[in-house]
Structures are given as structure tokens and as C-alpha cells.
Amino acid sequence: MSPVYILKRFCFMLVTLFCISIIIFAITMVLPGNLAQVILGEFATDDALRALEDQMGLNLPFYEQYGKWIWGVLHGDFGHALSMDQPILPLLLFRLKNSAILAAFSIVLVTIIAIPLGVFAALHRNSAVDRIIQVSSYVGISIPEFATGSLLIIAFAGPVLNLFPSAGYVPFSENFSEALSHIVLPVMTLVIVLIAHIMRQTRSEMIHVMQSDYVRSARLRGLSNRMVVFKHALRNALMPTITVLALDVGYLIGSVVVIEEVFAYPGIGRLIVYAVTSRDVPLLQATVLTVACVYCLVNFLADLAYGLVNPRIRYQ
């Protein structure tokens, strides 16, 4: 993989992020409701409103407002969360860290469970085990997350089997085992949802690759079954899986609103919901931008990983 390729992907990511930031800012600008009005309440006088608007720069042209905002963001200043009256950055970092812990555990588990399952199912195609794997993973993906989460709570946090806490959060720095037990159920829910994705992708790609000419030729060169499967087939079969994994990481970071809601887990997904319901525009801008950043970064890393396993990617 050439440095030019890395640089290209990186520049591509920056351009994407720039576009996203404009879109986010523009959308929050055209949302109904006046920011000054939100702060001062509905009984504010016109004079007070105008004064605050001037003070906050709400009457400036779009590009100037955007410039001020993005300049701040680039310097680590996301502004003030209006609804909580505190700086956004520390709040954001705390929530991001929590979501990241959830996402990291989930993605690692999904990877180490789903890929071997997919390979196994592909190698024993149409066998009973394959069918069981297929059906159960389908069940996992078809039940909505809130249902899966609630069922898990009933099963493992209910009165019968009180193994794990049903909700809440304990920092890892405080009490490791407590913290761990708090994320078991949310992680389990996410894994159940995502396993089918990765498993199906790996299985179908593996079946496709196992029928390819180069796998046949590897076999006919007298290589052992293990070499054929793990050296020649798997590496090729994993390429599309990497892309799907990256998309799933994005999903985990940004869209786990429901899970965090069910388990009352203080992650970034809940923060977005909070920002929307309390009409906290600066907080909304900051959280959405953060999720977009994570998404882009993960895809950038996936591109690099893809370039590593696929020698045909070679930008000159």
C-alpha cells in the first residue's frame, strides 16, 4: 500500500467531513424556532431578543456564522450547551467514551463470533448446522432491538435470574467488575442484532470464493484443506466483510439510541435525543458532527485495512 493511497483516502475523508459540517450547520439553521427565543423564553421582550441575537451573532450572514462555529470546533471549542449551561466538549467526550466502550466490546465480539460462524456455515453448506446458524441469526436481526433488549432484561435481570443489572452505568475506573456487568446486556443485544449481518456476508462471500478457479487450482496443486480454506479462500472472502464491519461500527456509534434508552446508558445516542427534545442547537450540532467524524474515521480505517489485504488497490 503506497503512502499516496493513504494520503488520498485521508484527503477524501477531510473533504467529506467539510461537506458534512456545512450540511449539519445549514440544517440546524433552518430548523424552526429562534435560538434567542429558546434561551429567553416566550415572554421575552422584542428588545431583549434583538440584543441577544446581536450578541450571539444570529443576524450575521450564514457563512460568517458557519465560519465562527467551525473555527471554534477546530480549536476544540464546541460552545455552550444551552439547556445545561455548561461547555459541550467535556460532556461530549464523556458520552463518546461510554458509547465507544459499548461499540468496541460489541464489534470485537461480533467479529470473533460471526466470521468463524460464516466460514463454518459456508464450508458445511446446506447441512443441518448451517440451517440452524442461518435461522437463528435471522431471528436475531428480525426482532427489533428494544424487544431483544427487553427480553434479555427479563431473562437475566429479572426476579428469576438476577445476574446482571438491568440499567445504569458505572465507570471502569471506579469498579471494573461492576462496570463490566453493566454493559453485558446492552452488548449482548447489539451482538445479537449485528451477528446476522457479518455472518451472512462472510458465508455468501466464502461460498463464492470456494467455487472460484483459484481455489480449485490451489486444491489441484495438492495443498492441504487448511491451506486452501484459510490461506487462499478466507483472505479474499474477508474483503467485503471489512466494508460491512465499518458500516456497522458507524451504526453502533450513532444509532444505538434505542439500546441506550432501554438500558438507561449515558452514551452519545441519548445525548442526541436529549439535544433534539430540549432544542439545544449547539449541542445538536456538536453531537451530530462527532458521530459523522467517527463514521468517516472508521471508513477511512476500513479503506486502509482493505488496501492491506487487497494488493490490487494501488493508486499511483
Partner: peptide
């Protein structure tokens, strides 16, 4: 073209 594994030298 298809008999060689694209991933290895």
C-alpha cells in the same frame, strides 16, 4: 486470469 489467487505474489 482466474487461476491465480489475486492476493498473493
Amino acid at each position: 486470469d482466474t487461476a491465480a489467487n489475486p492476493c498473493y505474489t
